[in-house]
Design a protein around this nucleic acid. Structure first.
Lengths: 341, 341
DNA sequence: GATTTTTTGATTTACGTACATCAAAATTGG
DNA sequence: CCAATTTTGATGTACGTAAATCAAAAAATC
């Protein structure tokens, strides 16, 4: 049987009230007494029963999710997963609020973060826009003892407690190797479609991709990046144009959203050509394209896992308890048409 | 605020004791009264607070894990993950016991399952050996109201509540496509190294592999399967021999354990040849081989996820509550040297 | 040594549920 | 209609912790 506060009190030779004062860092305990209690806690291996404590406290976990107001499948999926989490709120004692901010707008994000500290959430998850102001705002909140995790896109160099997302450099590298291996010794050009080079995750994917391409597949030439703004229409136009102008394109890497446009362009312009295509994010559209061989592989991050992981980590940080690191690693899914879920 | 038993009592116009009798299916409640209470529960959307209930009951979850006594890296890893889970026992209210049975021995497994029902565990996880007797024993336990999940290797056609493992047919198919795509238009022979065709997961992987190979890469010929019994020594001998005798082997698929032997054989016999190799299970050995280009891709199932998932599912079944399906899907990890964890 | 201040103990209530007991009420059988 | 039986209510204790109150004891101050 695990020890209880009563056991601690008995072992330390103090009353229950004193143990409580030590455990909940209430004032009015002499230094020596506090030490006695802490020794007993250590020696008996006491750990607070979080379930019982939460019951007694009537504790809930007010959490805030801050998301960019982007109109693409991935963000819709992320939103849906958060709504799923809201449905589980009562069982998980969470109280989740979602705030949408204009995409790619550091100032807007900062002002939301500033206001946030007033209504005292016990945890904050945000899709970070990579800017110094945002970093500073996050650091201020961390110093103010708010647990913070970045979601999907990280804020390296900041004090955020955790990042619930994939390693985007590794994702880019993986895409490069898959594309290089699939193409074999053929020479040709590679088109890269991104959302925006202003977002960190896209920059990192490109970085990883370019590195491996240059190192290991120098016979493949990367064309200048097409910035589709995660918008299907723009993506369609850019890709269609590139395919018309470069007859030697043999591979495409789409590292952002807006794949609907890409797929349409491929079907219109590349019917007679053998293209190898790798895209990010599994959606209804990319899934269909994978099955009909328009796309050869999809790299994916599971939005559901990211949301659930963010919640688990925030709760744990709020309670000051440890997380299972391996469980919270967000994995890069690689889907071929054979292992679709 | 979520409703409590008090709210139910008030809404149904009965006493707390009666609500309790209904909730815990105790006798002594008239049919009409029971209906009234059940209506109130439905209308208020009451759900029992599992944490509070467990506290009151002093509930623990005695779980049993039944594993084959196989001496390979994967099983060692699985064991290690179970030990990790044991360390979390007090926080998770679990009480985990591990039983080892001789591998590939249905009779031994059955007799362990038979004895099990006596000490009343609230859940059982087993690495199933695929045999009719085992299926029958599992079905008996399920009928006896024991929650049961299969781990790593499934028992299709049985009544087990859940399978915590990967889709092995999909794994085999994925391996085939990766190999086929990596090899390109080259013609040649493919060596397949398995553990034993008596284990379901290996049979399924081979099935998936062969299907896709025949359908999509007919220019690649699969050699007769080498059965390495998951033993590094045997695997080494078989692979070395095959490489000596078949100069036209251009690809290898290792779908079982014992990869240490495979890797040694490759390094000895294939220095001058360009082989494409795909193996299962990420271990220290396969990881090193992936990094030094001896292996091109590793398919993996995360033993930690499997164990944690099995525990979550068993606890949920014991409490009669729902699981988050998407969370419990065990994914097939595909590792290239770029996305190693 | 008396007084103030700080520290500690004892005790109670609460969280939401489980479970047991005993009395009261309602229902059933004869 | 009475007795036997079933159903229901009222009440208390427990689980492990939080949080509050008030009294008692100890320490610090003068």
């Amino acid at each position: 049987m695990r020890p209880t506060v009563h056991d601690i009190a008995a072992a330390a030779g103090v009353s229950l009230a004193t143990v409580d004062r030590v455990l909940n860092q209430r004032p009015g305990v002499r230094h020596v007494t506090r030490e006695k209690v802490e020794t007993a806690i250590r020696e008996l291996g006491y750990v607070r029963d979080v379930a019982a404590a939460n019951l007694a406290k009537g504790r809930t976990y007010p959490l805030v999710f801050i998301l960019p107001a982007s109109d693409n499948s991935f963000m819709h999926g992320l939103n849906a997963e958060i709504r799923e989490a809201v449905l589980r709120s009562s069982a998980e004692r969470t109280n989740i609020r979602t705030i949408e901010v204009p995409a790619f707008d550091p100032a807007a994000l900062v002002s939301v973060l500033e206001e946030l500290s007033r209504d005292k959430p016990c945890g904050i998850a945000l899709v970070a826009t990579d800017a110094p102001d945002v970093r500073a705002a996050v650091d201020r909140l961390v110093r103010g003892r708010f647990p913070i995790v970045t979601l999907v896109s990280d804020l390296t160099g900041s004090l955020r407690h955790h990042y619930a997302g994939v390693d985007n450099i590794a994702a880019g590298r993986t895409a490069a190797r898959l594309l290089g291996r699939f193409l074999g010794p053929r020479k040709g050009e590679i088109a890269v479609l991104a959302g925006s080079m202003l977002v960190r995750d896209h920059r990192e994917r490109l970085e990883g991709f370019s590195t491996v391409m240059a190192e290991e597949f120098p016979h493949l030439a990367i064309l200048p990046v097409l910035e589709g703004r995660d918008d299907p229409e723009v993506a369609h136009m850019l890709v269609a144009d590139a395919l018309s102008r470069h007859a030697s394109i043999i591979g495409v890497y789409s590292l952002g959203a807006g794949n609907r446009g890409l797929i349409r362009a491929l079907k219109e312009k590349a019917v007679d050509r053998v293209l190898t295509v790798i895209a990010h994010e599994l959606t209804a559209h990319t899934r269909a394209a994978l099955i009909d061989n328009t796309i050869d592989a999809i790299l994916n991050q599971d939005a559901g896992h990211e949301v659930r992981s963010a919640i688990r980590v925030l709760k744990a940080k709020a309670d000051g308890i440890a997380v299972i690191e391996a469980q919270e690693r967000i994995r890069l899914d690689i889907f071929l048409k054979d292992n679709l879920p």
